[in-house]
Design a protein around this nucleic acid. Structure first.
Lengths: 237, 237
DNA sequence: GAAAAACTAATGTCAGACATTTAAAGTTTT
DNA sequence: AAAACTTTAAATGTCTGACATTAGTTTTTC
């Protein structure tokens, strides 16, 4: 009788899960070399092709990397913040676009999270963060800037604000929320007047960051959220 | 001449990237069927094995699912919040454990994000959320509860608090931050006295949620963060 | 002793076969 | 005509064995 609890999942998925568990549990440590594909095939009693499919699954999650050549093989990968962020952004973006998440809900979440950074950014921001913010504000005021470029600059502005908290975990977590909004934001047409309103709030926020006034950053973000929501309501109506 | 900009990346990775772009850009829509493996092999002029490795990569990211049988094939997957969360938790957990992120940094990020939920949770929490929180508090007070079970209950408590905001995007984003902390938290030994202190704060927070007092939730979380940081400092010293 | 060549062990790719699953079409029975 | 069974076809899942490519290591040559 075939097990009726485990509905015969693919061998390559089983093997991938097995190795993944070993990595997550710490049984395999960073930069440790896995057995060669041939050895894994022997160990799991499957063909090399099946082992390879399993390894490709793990590679897609950045859990391992592979090297060719005599001393090559599959190695446990140290997940970098960059790689993790890139994955998270892809996932978050698709999640929003595929699940009919309303602009309102996504926007609310984004600004709630961003306000969470305000006290820390106020406390720890460095001159470089303020420089980036002011540079992006300048770009946003340029004539003939496309809506998409405006959005991209908006994202850069907000990331600088978040980075001001000087907490890489916070930056990583926020990246998904901020970047994933971009496709939704790109649906909005920004009139000259609404751009001016947004830029004015950006200036307010930047000044508040420079003055290390957390409360003022917070209220600026809240005003920005309200402005964005109003704009979106107009577009989606 | 071999391209000297793209250092000959694997064919299966190239094909995966190609299909991934089609999904992310919306050229392939949810539940659409991809060509069969044989057709893809023809189209990309590679063997079926290589196509399969590419498809497994996409499957590992929950971008596609496959079905066997006559009408089977690979279908664009609608990423669910659950699947996205599970992935994010795995990634976040490894990120923290592999990159020597200090407990302090992770803890700070977590509580900053959690405080971001306080105003929304105060406003929208349902009786069911409060029920969960009180149930977890009761569990945390049980005699003979292991440290790990205490931590697990702590996570459940905090997730209920976050879910109280009734914003699925927020819940999703927070899941990574809260769950990824668990291995770090598990390194802490919770004495009876420190458990009592934590439970008392949980009660304060729950009462504040019930009373819809956002400020009080926030200060409760801040106190809890301070308590946790103190405990951790003692352990890691 | 340094450069060049040969060796070696690993991953990457291919071709073809067979196994298994599943839905649909066809056939028989009632 | 409806129901039950059988067959078929198309797809993924797995296996085998081969060859290509890569990159250290060792050996040879000058």
């Amino acid at each position: 009788m075939k097990s009726n609890l485990v509905p015969t999942v693919d061998l390559s998925a089983q093997i991938a899960a097995n190795i993944r568990d070993a990595i997550v549990s710490g049984a395999l440590i960073v930069d440790e070399r896995l057995p060669s594909e041939a050895e894994l095939a022997q160990k799991f009693e499957v063909s090399r092709a099946t082992v390879r499919e399993a390894l490709k699954r793990l590679a897609a999650q950045s859990l391992i990397r592979t090297q060719r050549g005599a001393t090559g093989g599959a190695f446990v990968n140290r997940i970098s913040f960059e790689a993790a962020q890139a994955q998270q952004i892809t996932t978050s973006t698709l999640l929003l676009s595929m699940n009919d998440v309303s602009f309102e809900t996504a926007c609310e979440a984004r600004y709630a999270l961003e306000r969470a950074c305000a006290p820390l950014s106020a406390q720890r921001r460095k001159p470089s963060h303020i420089d980036v913010m002011r540079a992006e504000i300048a770009r946003q005021g340029q004539q003939g800037l496309s809506d998409e470029a405006f959005c991209a600059s908006d994202v850069a502005f907000h990331r600088a604000l978040v980075d001001g908290a000087c907490n890489p975990v916070l930056s990583y977590q926020l990246a998904g929320a901020v970047e994933a909004m971009q496709p939704l934001m790109n649906m909005i047409t920004f009139s000259a007047r609404s751009r001016d309103a947004i830029i004015a709030l950006h200036v307010t926020i930047t000044d508040a960051v420079q003055a290390q006034d957390a409360a003022l950053i917070g209220s600026g973000l809240t005003a920005l959220e309200a402005e964005t929501q109003t704009l979106a309501r107009r577009v989606f109506a």
